[in-house]
Amino acid sequence: MLKFFCMVFFILDKLFLGDEMRNTKYDKIANLHKAPENRLKNAIIAFFSGGVMGFLAELIIEVFCMYLHISRIDSATLMIMFFIFMAAFLTAIGIFDKLVQVFKCGLLIPITGFAHSITSSCLDSKSEGLIYGIGSNAFKLAGSVILYGVVSAWFFGMIRFIVGGVG
């Protein structure tokens, strides 16, 4: 049905409008339906989605503490592993990318973004084989986080070790 209307519209368009007219009209319609790049809205969405992620993190830590009877530090480790598990799973079944389009940075800045980058580069390079595909491309995106993390941690640790003493 929709296809039929499109055909009719296309033919009418061809018949009654010249090329120049059609272009301007097309531009007008396209501009009308183009989603405006709304930075304020993006920022608000990122704030609330990130906030909900942080809220869930604290809630999960407290729930694990209560029901598994483990210390808060162990509980935090379990919480991080839980989020990584969820992110890897959702990326593998193809939902995470759609969620990122909706929730923006709220999902990329927490540890889920790290897990997502490893899983997605693994999935992208699966067709190239186990060694040169998955093996060598796993840290294509996440490698920068680990490299700069380790280098800066060593650097700042050295400064603290020399200047401030350790404690």
């Binding site: 790049e37 930075r39 993006n42 920022a43 969405i45 990122a46 704030f47 609330f48 989605s49 990130g50 906030g51 992620m53 942080g54 809220f55 993190a57 923006k104 940075c105 709220g106 990329l108 800045i109 927490p110 973004g113 790290f114 980058s117 995106l141 920068s144 986080v145 700069y148 993390g149």
Partner: peptide, 25 residues
């Protein structure tokens, strides 16, 4: 706190040419 971090990153991401990889690093 988590919302604030994500808000800042989203503002940087929208207003500059940095990718999420830059921001996480």
């Amino acid at each position: 706190f988590c919302g604030f971090i994500c808000l800042i990153s989203q503002i940087i991401l929208d207003n500059s040419k940095l990718t999420p990889g830059h921001i996480t690093s």
